[in-house]
Every structure is written in structure tokens, then in C-alpha cells.
Design a protein around this nucleic acid. Structure first.
Length: 484
RNA sequence: CGGGGUGUGGCGCAGUUGGUAGCGCGCGGCGUUUGGGACGCUGAGGUCGGAGGUUCGAGUCCUCUCACCCCGACCA
């Protein structure tokens, strides 16, 4: 352990202080940096590249369901955002306002969007006349602003990047299907691409989106303290917004009806989730499928003669891999190989190929996996492309499997309230328990333990026992946990 | 908004009873190095968060102020 520590002396160990480890790894791996503005972060090229790869994959999946991208204004007039009472009540504490333009006071303040229902729905009202205009399926990639009190890089910043989808439908059933469909898109994306196992389910009344009929969520478990992180949400808004924004249409029978909406979003907090779930004392471990660099080549030489041969081999190997994976050759001359190894470990590159005189002589490269450090394997150049492809795939699965193991290990069925308190107090993870459905029991647990119901999982047991808190008949099995 | 803390080269820090700012890392140059964070020589870089005050003299003392961080309440 002493030697281990030496390699990463600049990074605090997870066990010592997980939250500080997170702050440090985000900064040192060059994902993000502090900005001069409180509560905001600068996303650096490496972090942004990661987000771009995530965007590309999620965007593709969203479009496959028939959704089109569009863009709506950043500002929302006060009167507009205040139309849906529950909606504004929920967001009011965290809305930023524009009250001046140049040197003129605005007649009516503008909200900087905390989410865009209030500016998109009025447009839907203009576009929808007939049932033939429905459904409308729209998504936008943008940033929104929520005036949070305690920011944390990626997880909670005043301004954050996300996509928000907004749809209009003729029937409640169709809206419900869409809300569930998009949650499934998120689940598949997060599990397949980010290697983060999640628990899909429904939010309780008190935890649902402001103005929604129902909110669905996927909840992931972070490393370290095993707290929950809401990784994406999808809302069936019912006809609440249709009514207040007057989205009406004539149905096939010529009857005037209010339309039904959904909205759903996934933000760059999932970047933080990947950091916290997969990372270790050496830094990030990025899932190959969205890693900006999947394979890094580190050349090693002593003499000028060796250097020529090694560089030739590096070129050849890079040429072989270039069309297959995202490969980068680290040709920096002012850094030693050892320094580079640590640097790329910190940045979480899934595979490293070392090419030195010994490798050149034997027509091979030395391969090291980020997820199983310390094990070097020689790969003949002739079989390199296939080997790299297969191993990347294996790394992706291994990351998911390890994360799933953590989730399962730190989830326990609890039937005794004292046991729940104990588990929350020691950061033991998720607790599965029966709940009667009353807000009183929910509030009480939150007040006494700080844990909240993360979701009512879709997967329910045949029989639900008595409520963990009040002992009355249980209606659902729910997941209790502390959350970021 | 409550509680705690910190502001000194890019980063991390030191700076005794007030005496005119120092260390490590990093950075530039040269040379030797390179299979898990190399080394030598050399060089550049700060007026101590801001304002006011006390004093012959303030990074050190006093007053005010600003910013940031951490812990709570809140949160995609």
C-alpha cells in the first residue's frame, strides 16, 4: 500500500474522504475546473469530450423513438412561468431573474429557464389544432439555471447541461406510454453506455416533479458513501399544462379536448455518477463506449536508434487501430513513461498499449487494462485489432458487473425501522422496505434519518408486508436512501 | 439562511515579540535521462483578497468589507 500511495500521492484516497476525492479527481483529471462565478464550473475539453460522446449516443437513441431536436429561448416571461401554480411553486426558490436589459428596467421580469415547459407549451398551443397534429415529439440540448445553495461539480451547479424532451399527445394513455418509453431509453443508455446499474421506478407524490401527474426515475448508487443519485427522470404531466397553456385540439369526433404532455431529462450529473461509481484511488475509470480516448499508446525508448524503431511501430499500431477505436499516441517528450502511465490512469483511459524495444523486437505490444492494473499482457501485432476490440468490450462489461455487485451488496431488505436508521447512519446503502403510502411516514423518516424514498421500483414482490414505519398494511416496496 | 473555516507567486503551504516576503511542486533554458510520477545546473514569477486605521515601520495589530470552501436546511 505504501508503494501504491506513492504513485498517486497527489490524489486523496477514497476511504479517507470520498467527497474530497471526488472534488480532486474531477479537477486533476481535467474534467472541470472552478470558475470565477460561484457555483458554476468550467467544463474542460476532456470532460466536454466525454459529455459529447454521451450526447451522441443518447441523441441517437432519442431520435430512434421519433423525436426531433429543436431549440427554445433561454428566457421565460414571468407571467408565463407562473401559469402552472404547482410548477412555479416548486421552482420559485431556485429561479434566476433578468430585470434589466441594457440600462432599461424590464416591464416584466424574465426567468432564466430552470426547465422549459413554460416556454414550450405556449408554442405547442399554437401548433396544435387537430388530433392530426399529434403527437409532437421534441427534444432540446441546452443549459438551464437553478439557483442552488450548495453546488458540487457536475452533480449540482447553478448552470447545468442537459437534454429536455417535451411531447404532446391526444390521450393520457399515450402520454403515459411515452413517459415510460423514455425512462426505458434512459435506463438502457445509462446501463449500456455508462455501465451504471440503476433501479427504475416511480417517485412518490412528495418527490415528483413540480406540476407533474407522475414522475418516473432511475436511481443509481454512488461509491464511497453509497448514497443514491437520481440519474434521469421522465414525467407524465397529464393535462395540467395542456389546460393552463390552452393546448386544445379537435378530436376525430369533432370534440374540443385538452392535450396531454410529457417531459423528460438527463443532465451532465451522470458524468459525476460515472466518476463516483467507477473511480478508484488512482482516478477515473471510464467505460470504453463513451471514453474520449479508448486506447492510449505510450512509447518507450532509450537510444536514438531505439526511438526510431519504436516510433515507427507506434505509427503502424496507431494506423491499425485508428479506424476501429479512439486511439491516442502520447508522444510528449518531456514526460517519462511512468509519468504518462499515472496520468492516463488518472484520466481513466480503458486500455494502454506500451511499445518499447522489447515489443518491437517481438512484433508485439504490451497491453494494460485500467480496470485490472498491474497485469501486463503481450499482444502480437497481427492479432491486435481483434484483441483490442474484444478487451474493450470486456472492460465495459466488467465495469457494469462490478457496479452491479456494489449495488446488490449494499442493498438490504429491511423490516424494522431501527435497522433502517442504523443503515442510514453508517452509509450502508439502499434499504428496501414496505411502505403504507402515507406522506406522514415518509416525512417522519426523512426528518429522523435524512433518508428519502428514492423510488417505488417497478419490480414489486408478490406480497408486501406491513409499513416499516407505522405497521399498517403496506402498499408498496420502496427504496430508502440518502441522496446527493 | 444558521454553524465553522480560509484568503500570501500557477498550485500546496511557511512566515516567531510588527523591521520591508520564503519553501515544495509546477513553469522557461541547457544537459543527462525514459518498461509505474527521473536528475543536475540555471532562470522567470508575488506587495501578502479589498478599504481604512494604529505605528518611524504592517503579511503580522485594530475596524469595516468582499470572496471562496466545508458542515447543516434545500436540490436534476
Amino acid at each position: 500500500m505504501t508503494t501504491e500511495r506513492k504513485f498517486v500521492e497527489e490524489l486523496i484516497e477514497q476511504e479517507d474522504d470520498f467527497d474530497r476525492w471526488y472534488v480532486e479527481v474531477v479537477r486533476k483529471a481535467e474534467l472541470a475546473d472552478d470558475s470565477p462565478v460561484r457555483g458554476t464550473k468550467v467544463i474542460r475539453p476532456y470532460g466536454f469530450a466525454l459529455w459529447e460522446h454521451m450526447q451522441a449516443e443518447l441523441d441517437r437513441r432519442i431520435k430512434e423513438t421519433g423525436v426531433q431536436n429543436a431549440y427554445f429561448p433561454l428566457f421565460i416571461p414571468k407571467s408565463m412561468i407562473e401559469r402552472e401554480a404547482a410548477h412555479i411553486a416548486g421552482f420559485a426558490p431556485e429561479v434566476a431573474w433578468v430585470t434589466r436589459g441594457g440600462d432599461k428596467e424590464l416591464e416584466e421580469p424574465w426567468a432564466v429557464r430552470p426547465t422549459s415547459e413554460a416556454i414550450i407549451c405556449p408554442m405547442f398551443a399554437r401548433w396544435v389544432q387537430s388530433y392530426r397534429d399529434l403527437p409532437i415529439l421534441i427534444n432540446q440540448w441546452c443549459s438551464v439555471v437553478r439557483w442552488e445553495e450548495r453546488p458540487r461539480a457536475f452533480l449540482r451547479t447553478l448552470e447545468f447541461l442537459w437534454q429536455e424532451g417535451h411531447t404532446v399527445h391526444a390521450t393520457l394513455e399515450e402520454a403515459e406510454q411515452r413517459a415510460r418509453l423514455m425512462l426505458e431509453v434512459y435506463r438502457d443508455f445509462v446501463e449500456t453506455e455508462l455501465a451504471l446499474p440503476v433501479i427504475p421506478g416511480q417517485k412518490t407524490e412528495s418527490e415528483k416533479f413540480a406540476g407533474a401527474l407522475r414522475t418516473y426515475t432511475i436511481e443509481a448508487m454512488m461509491g464511497g458513501k453509497h448514497w443514491a443519485l437520481q440519474s434521469a427522470t421522465s414525467h407524465n404531466l397529464g393535462d395540467h399544462f395542456g389546460r393552463v397553456f390552452d393546448i386544445q385540439f379537435l378530436d376525430a369526433e369533432g370534440k374540443r379536448r385538452y392535450a396531454f404532455n410529457t417531459s423528460w431529462g438527463l443532465s451532465h450529473r451522470t458524468v459525476g455518477a460515472m466518476v463516483m461509481v467507477h473511480g478508484d484511488d488512482r482516478g477515473l475509470k471510464l467505460p470504453p463506449r463513451i471514453a474520449p480516448i479508448q486506447v492510449v499508446i505510450v512509447p518507450i525508448w532509450r537510444s536514438d536508434d531505439e526511438r526510431v524503431k519504436v516510433e515507427e511501430a507506434v505509427d503502424r499500431v496507431r494506423g491499425l487501430l485508428r479506424d476501429v477505436v479512439r486511439v491516442h499516441a502520447d508522444l510528449r517528450e518531456d514526460k517519462t513513461p511512468g509519468w504518462k502511465f499515472n496520468d492516463w490512469d488518472l484520466k481513466g483511459v480503458p486500455l494502454r498499449l506500451e511499445i518499447g524495444p522489447r515489443d518491437v523486437a517481438q512484433e508485439q505490444v504490451t497491453l494494460v487494462r485500467r480496470d485490472v492494473l498491474g497485469k501486463r499482457q503481450a499482444i502480437p501485432i497481427s492479432g491486435l485489432v481483434q484483441a483490442v476490440t474484444e478487451i474493450l468490450d470486456d472492460v465495459q462489461h466488467s465495469l457494469f458487473t462490478a457496479a452491479k455487485r456494489m449495488l446488490d451488496t449494499h442493498t438490504e431488505d429491511v423490516s424494522d425501522y431501527e435497522r433502517l436508521k442504523e443503515r442510514v447512519a453508517i452509509n450502508a446503502g439502499f434499504s428496501r422496505a414496505s411502505w403504507c403510502g402515507s406522506a406522514e411516514c415518509e416525512t417522519r423518516v426523512k426528518a429522523e434519518t435524512r433518508a428519502t424514498i428514492r423510488c417505488i421500483p417497478f419490480e414489486q414482490p408478490e406480497q408486501v408486508g406491513p409499513c416499516l414505519v407505522c405497521g399498517e398494511a403496506g402498499r408498496f416496496q420502496v427504496i430508502w436512501a440518502r441522496a446527493y
